[in-house]
């Protein structure tokens, strides 16, 4: 899931100030904390109030999309409203905001949120944790399943650095564990310090290119669709 943080209401208002009719689109996908229809309504009310305070009238409608990052779903759900509204405010992560801007070329979609990181939900500690940084070169097989790219503040391939004290990281004031000490302890437990010892060459950043692309294999997807039709 993608962890997001609502922007300050003043910042959102600044973006939509030139418009008097806006569509507020929630997302029922993996955005956390949830940003669905209720959150869209609350945001609409806040923006209306803010507009009123500035002597403006704002018309808005709240709706939600199953998944804003899917062009088919987002396209079919949002398109019916486009004629009535001048701009869209999206409550999805950056993927959703980008997708709406790409599929609706004649309408601007503004982000209501800052996208923070891709996370795993850790119910035990009641936390969302960034266990993976989607770096294109998985090291988890060498690091007992703890990712140094995502979990070490410096993303080091050959840690720990001198900034760890008793297993805690200097970044954040020794509140969070040092990923490399966690890796050491877990590998030691499995008698696999041979993996810890291993010198790892520098990361290949070509594998983490931005923008990332992956072509869908058309023949394969077509074949599956045909198979389903036949059934």
């Amino acid at each position: 899931m993608i962890i997001t943080k609502l922007k300050d209401i003043d910042e959102i208002y600044e973006m939509i100030k030139p418009y008097s009719k806006i569509l507020i689109a929630g997302c029922d996908g993996c955005c956390q904390p949830p940003r669905s229809i209720n959150e869209a309504k609350v945001l609409g009310q806040m923006l209306e109030l803010k507009s009123k305070m500035n002597g403006k009238k704002l018309t808005w409608k709240a709706m939600t999309v199953l998944r804003q990052c899917d062009d088919r779903i987002a396209g079919s759900t949002v398109r019916p409203y486009l004629d009535e509204y001048e701009a869209i405010v999206s409550l999805a992560c950056g993927l959703g905001v980008s997708m709406l801007n790409r599929i609706f070329e004649d309408t601007l979609t503004f982000p209501a949120q800052d996208s923070m990181f891709g996370a795993s939900e850790n119910h035990g500690d009641n936390r969302y944790e960034q266990y993976c940084d989607t770096c294109g070169e998985c090291l988890l097989g060498e690091t007992a399943g703890i990712c140094p790219v995502a979990s070490c503040a410096k993303g080091l391939h050959n840690g720990p650095c001198g900034g760890q004290v008793d297993g805690f990281c200097e970044v954040g004031g020794y509140k969070y564990p040092c990923a490399w000490i966690q890796i050491y302890e877990r590998l030691k437990k499995f008698n696999r310090l041979d993996l810890f010892n291993k010198f790892r060459p520098p990361k290949d950043y070509r594998l983490m290119t931005s923008p990332g692309h992956l072509e869908l294999i058309q023949e394969y997807t077509n074949a599956i669709e045909e198979e389903e039709v036949e059934k």
């Binding site: 993303g155 900034g163 200097e170 954040g172 790892r200 950043y205």
Partner: peptide, 26 residues
């Protein structure tokens, strides 16, 4: 490796760490 920018007087700057101290030796 160097102390993380977070510790200093320009905490907003990008922490690079493309290499680490071992790979710099290499």
């Amino acid at each position: 490796t160097g102390d993380h920018p977070n510790m200093g007087d320009m905490p907003e700057s990008k922490p690079v760490f493309d290499l680490d101290s071992a790979t710099l030796c290499m």
